[in-house]
Design a protein around this nucleic acid. Structure first.
Lengths: 205, 205
DNA sequence: TCCGAGGCAGACCGGTCTGTACGCCTCGGT
DNA sequence: ACCGAGGCGTACAGACCGGTCTGCCTCGGA
């Protein structure tokens, strides 16, 4: 019995930070919590250090700047959210590559209904900082990694043109996230239906 | 021969502000230009007043706060972008309701390729401020108006369940915008293909 | 026992933020 | 001829920003 095991997979799995209580871990854990919920510009360094119980000097000893911490946050988000929460969970729920692909939107459905649903940090940071900013570029890179997971599943499933398939699939993922942010709790179902049609049209007929 | 008639429909049509040179118009025109490109928090009041050649007292005489100006900007964006640039242009390009629906993604294709492509301000503001913020709620409202235009076209086309159709369609619109922001210039084509399948499945068979 | 690395607390810097206030000027109506 | 509305420029308040720096304390290894 650890923290946040009440509803679905935990956002911050104990395995990632288990037992560690070093300042750098507290900073990262706090950054994950605050950045994912309120964005980058919405969280200041002073709040970060006070919330993580760390002095300012310690903060800047581990991270040369706030942007450096944001980069570390994005990488942590890739591990915790993309890999552990979405990809791994979808793979667990499906038995075949196609089922695993479609299960992504089942996982989305559960995720959308969490009261602490915070949308996709990569999209948030990309739009907040702009595509030209280093943090925006990093976000684009992590978004492409998500597409890579989809493409790998598409290849396993033997679908046609897996790269283009993944790009179309990703449109459904991102669009449904925005719709969920607007309050459409059924956005995952709508996207999943369109995803089924996409699979049909990419099957080697 | 007016301004920005070089490539496609103008972002700020002369008709909207034609001839008017009042301070409030200059403020709004500047706000449109800056907010749509750099977001809300990325533009300060000092820059707004200096760029529009207006004193600070004049600014606060017309808009009681920066948020009030943002609300006015969102409404202007609804008129200039949603109505004049997207809906009207798509209707102009298509002869039937279904063609007009699909033409939305043709307009998107042209829009995505502009070097001053700035994504969707409603999505930007929603993610920047959060769904609970008044500006976020206003953005959700303007996004629902976009869905209303789609739903109206779906009803004209006699499609099944036009409201759900519009929600799915909107997922494709928003997802393709994010993909275009990432740099995928063909996102409009991918979304349009999925949109065709969506129409097929909503036709009264 | 000592000593240095690392952590905590907080003052401080220059800059930026939204918003207020004050002084001066230029109009247009009476 | 006058007078007030409205516009311009600017100084300023109060808060917050990212980032630097100093001082004190604790702990672990030689």
């Amino acid at each position: 019995m650890t923290v946040n095991d009440a509803e679905g997979p935990p956002l911050l799995p104990a395995t990632a930070m288990a037992g560690r209580d070093e300042p750098v871990d507290r900073i990262l854990a706090t950054a994950y919590e605050l950045f994912s919920r309120r964005g980058i510009r919405g969280v200041g360094v002073n709040e970060l250090i006070s919330s993580s119980g760390v002095s300012k000097a310690t903060f800047y000893r581990h991270f040369p700047s706030k942007d450096a911490l944001v980069l570390a946050f994005l990488e942590l988000r890739d591990q915790v959210w993309t890999v552990d929460l979405i990809v791994a969970e979808a793979s667990r729920r499906g038995n075949t590559p196609e089922e695993r692909l479609l299960a992504v939107f089942d996982v989305f459905g559960d995720w959308f209904q969490r009261e602490d649903f915070e949308a996709c940090s990569f999209i948030n940071v990309l739009l907040e900082m702009g595509a030209g900013h280093p943090l925006g570029k990093a976000s684009i890179d992590y978004l492409s990694r998500i597409r890579g997971h989809i493409q790998a599943l598409a290849e396993e499933a033997g679908l046609d043109r897996p790269e283009e398939f993944a790009r179309s699939w990703h449109i459904l993922m991102k669009g449904s996230i925005i719709s969920a942010t607007e309050g459409d709790a059924l956005a995952s179902k709508r996207a999943q239906q369109m995803a089924r049609w996409l699979i049909e049209h990419h099957r080697g007929l």
